[in-house]
Amino acid sequence: MVKPRYIFGEAWSIARSGARQTLLAIGLIALSLYVPALFALLSKNLGRLSTDAETPAAVITLDPAADGRGIARRLADDSRVREIRIVSSDAALARFRRAYPELGAALGDLKEAPFPPTIEVRMRPSAGPGAGTAVAAAARSWPGVEIAESEEEIGRRFSDGVRIVRAAGLALGGVLVLAAILSVASAIRLALDLHRDEIEIMRLMGATETAVRAPFWLHATGEGLAGGALALVLLYATYRLGLNYLARSPHPVLSMFWGSFLDWRAVTLMPLIGAAAGLFGSMISLTRRT
């Protein structure tokens, strides 16, 4: 039975004796995890905008002086409509601040309300496709209505777009995680070359295969963990930089795409994926013959 103290001591010793290789491996793993994580962040923010059951089928933008309740009553007369919700300018601003807490402050200094009052129309499931478009088309000619848009088509296209981004991120992520594993495997091979004589001596002195390999496994797992953590730090730095930029110069579209950071599960997962990549990379490079 190999004692943990020995494994930790040797792993640390391996890391110190090849400090440059260790840093290089951490950098490569960080880079390999950073790119897919960036996709995950984009996908998450885009996903918040995509349609679901609660997404209105049509949004009627009102003239600030219009009789909102009157228009709402008229819309409610349509039997296909399930729900009507009047969203005032203040309510729209409050909603924006809830959804984008980091960007909401940037709108605080404005004297006028940045969002016009709207009416959100949700249809019954039995209404069928195209009902939202028909309601929006009818409402366009009503007095007090500035714009009436159906969200159905846009929502569908947007959902498709989000799905594509997610799939691309997943595919790229898979490739890059594989690259991370190979990077660790190469780094471990380098470390093995540096310590080949030692490994030979250790075996001759009666070290078991576990005693020879476990410190390398731990070393690589540590590299992966550090790489994952570094990728997380880089991602958060990118996110904060983006927020600062958007706070200084708000952008109507980009601001919506850059509203929140990854949730705690994804944040925990990144270093763990790095560690797993490190462990797997070291296992494929450390065989009995090495």
Partner: peptide, 8 residues
């Protein structure tokens, strides 16, 4: 002390 170290 290498082997003794391995053995804990």
């Amino acid at each position: 002390a290498f082997v003794q170290n391995v053995l804990g």
